[in-house]
Amino acid sequence: MSRTKNAVWLLLILPGTLFVILFMLVPLFSLCLTSFFPDQSFSLSSYFRLFGDAYFQQTFMRSIRLSLLSTLVCALLGYPTAYYISKFSRHKGMMMAFAVFPMFTSPVVRSFSWMVILGKRGIVNNFLVWSGLFAKPQDLLYNEFSMTVGFVQLFLPQMILSLIGVMDNIPDDLTLAAGNLGATKLGSFFHVVFPLSISGLVTGSVLVFTGCMTAYTTPQLLGGTDTRVLSTMVYQYAMSLRDWTQASVVAVVMIVATMVISSVFNSVSRKINPMA
């Protein structure tokens, strides 16, 4: 009996397991292998070469800098928004739907909208010139500024939704109790609500950060040739320069950097959050 049962579960999981192993795990393994064994023997030469390259260093640092900056802006904008929606808004369902809508909309469309808005003849430049702040239109596109704006708009909904998920589980009784015990509104926020919402902040930050580190559409459309990031660099090496080895090394670096920084986020949150 147990033998036939064994056969059943094996039969059920086998096709999917084989599919993922064959088309993802084996290729991923080959990727790492070729990056560490450039000419049949183990060598970190590709990595040394890459990290010694000033162009790569700039790109690597830009990826991390822009991702951290976007995560910070998403947290600063997302927190009060989520707090308002979770605790004060009377139209919560609708507010959440409006946060989901951009998430479901193609990233190409969303990045493209900033090309219209931030362009030389876009609404922002028209305003800058009209108001007399600048004599002529500014370069707002194809730089780190436009990329950050694009990233924030792309991933802010994820931050808001993760925060709402956590804040909804904080009972209002807790703040009420804190108030009865003499805490000020601000005091009860910082000592009760904020510590309890840190886990949502971390989940959201990891989502935003990994999203920014790996996003391709936004840096491709809103970035310029001198503001490449890791993802556009992988594409450039692979498809334009046909340098498979360099592309592999950049890809491995991208995966590792994203994982390391995400786990740093998580461990920091465990340290400061006694509830986790």
């Binding site: 080959s30 790996t214 391709y216 993802s231 992988v234 592309a247 890809a251 995966i255 994203t258």
Partner: peptide, 12 residues
């Protein structure tokens, strides 16, 4: 990352 998935799919 999708961009890596695309790359390894193409190559391997």
């Amino acid at each position: 990352p999708c961009i890596v998935l695309g790359f390894i799919m193409l190559r391997y």
